[in-house]
């Protein structure tokens, strides 16, 4: 801890045990108490138990949506982040365009847009490609498959994941760009003066240092995407929030349904926060 215990003890008029008590992380106790109370309610109370049994079916989907979209977002973000720093005019401008446009549109609008505009457009283009392949007799089997693809064959969850990944990719691009820029220019110069190519100096010198810088903001964004995955409930993807809403609509037990949903999110985010913290510590090195 950054707080020096000696300074606290010097405070006049306070017994030593008061200092110890004021340092105790009380908030963790409160969180634990809430957890215990809700767990007790789920076991003991019929309505809480029913709410939990129904809502828990969404946990897997929530975790799946968050994990996959964040992984894709990291790749998109790294590509666009490097692009933003590239000396290649076309690459750089495409990256900036992506970041600025996506960051300026609410995620909920993007979700609707990807699900109901982009996905159908892509499918119809694939149909056109399939028709063309059939007509010109190239890879006829694949062509007929492409020609008969229907937008209904693209599950909402996939459209939701794609949209969330695109949205978060723009945030991660800025994180990566800032992380790379935070590494002194002398590092690149030393690497290049040893004869390393631009790619090699990125791969061996800059990125390994930048990754330590970007770990905390990336961890934050991972927790963020887990919470924002609740937005995909508007596409009727059966994740936690959607299951909570369904239960509420079925039973009018709002307190139990939403309470269970909130506590489950809290358990997930706190676990993640803990994991991120320990990962940061493992990656840390003496500066």
């Amino acid at each position: 801890m950054a707080i020096n215990p000696d300074i606290r003890r010097q405070r006049p008029g306070l017994a030593p045990w008061v200092g110890d008590l004021s340092r105790f992380p009380w908030w963790i106790l409160v969180v634990l108490l809430i957890g215990i109370a809700v767990t007790y309610a789920i076991i003991d109370n019929r309505f809480w138990g029913e709410a939990y049994d129904f809502v828990k079916l969404g946990i897997k989907i929530t975790v799946k949506v968050s994990l996959i979209s964040f992984t894709v977002a990291l790749s998109l973000g790294l590509l666009a982040g490097l692009g933003g720093l590239s000396s290649n005019m076309i690459y750089r401008n495409f990256s900036m365009l992506y970041v600025q446009v996506i960051r300026g549109i609410p995620i909920i609008v993007q979700l609707y847009f990807v699900a109901f505009v982009i996905a159908p457009t892509v499918v119809s283009q694939i149909n056109n490609l399939g028709d063309w392949m059939l007509a010109s007799g190239i890879l006829v089997n694949l062509g007929s498959g492409l020609a008969n693809l229907h937008i209904r064959d693209v599950p909402m969850i996939n459209r939701a994941i794609a949209s969330l990944a695109i949205a978060y990719g723009a945030f991660e691009a800025e994180v990566f760009r800032a992380g790379i820029q935070s590494i002194e220019r002398g590092q690149t110069e030393a690497a290049r003066s040893l004869g390393m190519s631009h790619f090699q100096s990125m791969r061996y010198i800059i990125l390994p240092q930048a990754i330590r810088v970007v770990m905390p903001p990336l961890g934050n964004d991972f927790i963020s995407i887990l919470k924002d995955s609740s937005l995909v409930s508007i596409l009727a993807v059966r994740e936690l929030t959607h299951m909570g809403q369904l239960h509420r609509a079925r039973t009018f037990r709002s307190w139990e349904a939403l309470g269970t949903v909130a506590v489950l999110y809290l358990m997930l985010t706190l676990t993640l926060a803990f994991l991120v913290k320990s990962m940061e510590r493992r990656l840390a090195f003496e500066k």
Partner: peptide
């Protein structure tokens, strides 16, 4: 560059 060694004022070692 690989034939020309360079030593910098601020060392620029890879930390």
């Amino acid at each position: 560059r690989s034939e020309v060694g360079m030593v910098f004022q601020l060392f620029n070692l890879f930390p």
